[in-house]
């Protein structure tokens, strides 16, 4: 086989292969929004993180502003310590409220940030002062049934 023609076809094959990888990266995997250019770390302590996972999203006003990078257990206070990286473009006030929320009724869990009114911003490495744990469905149902049971005799 002619060597020039051979090179042409091999070049075509390699180009198509790399185009496929590019397609997987940009169109299927969306590499651009998954990585923030510059990030800083913040952490928060929760009594219960429910089903939160590492790499879960951190959202503020519904927009993804960061990712959970580490979940550890604090054996002194029996709390979960969640470390997250936040996009370097965004800064949050000191009294920002971090809560664990669920997307939809049974969807994945994420950290929601509700910005407060403090003038001072959280510095890299600092800890959220105000947090709210995940809602555990079983506890909620148990509470509801308990309340129902206790109010039935009174209404009669």
């Amino acid at each position: 086989m002619n060597r020039k023609l051979l090179d042409l076809w091999v070049g075509f094959f390699v180009a198509v292969g790399f185009a496929a990888i590019l397609f997987l990266a940009l169109r299927v995997g969306n590499v651009s929004s998954a990585n923030f250019a510059e990030t800083y770390r913040l952490s928060a302590k929760f009594d219960n993180i429910g089903g939160l996972k590492v790499r879960g999203p951190v959202k503020s006003a519904g927009v993804v502003v960061g990712r959970v990078v580490e979940i550890a257990f604090d054996a002194q206070n029996y709390e979960a310590v969640v470390t997250m990286t936040i996009d370097g473009r965004y800064h949050f006030p000191r009294d920002t409220f971090a809560s664990i929320l669920t997307a939809g009724l049974l969807g994945e869990q994420y950290i929601g940030l509700d910005a407060g009114g403090d003038e001072k911003m959280l510095q890299p490495g600092e800890v959220f002062a105000k947090t709210q744990s995940a809602v555990v469905l079983e506890k909620l149902i148990g509470q509801f049934m308990f309340n129902k049971a206790s109010e039935t005799p009174a209404s009669k």
């Binding site: 094959f13 198509v16 292969g17 496929a20 990888i21 997987l24």
Partner: peptide, 13 residues
């Protein structure tokens, strides 16, 4: 092989 696998995934999607 990696190029073929990437093509396979892409055309599969």
């Amino acid at each position: 092989m990696p190029l073929l696998a990437a093509l396979f995934s892409a055309i599969g999607v």
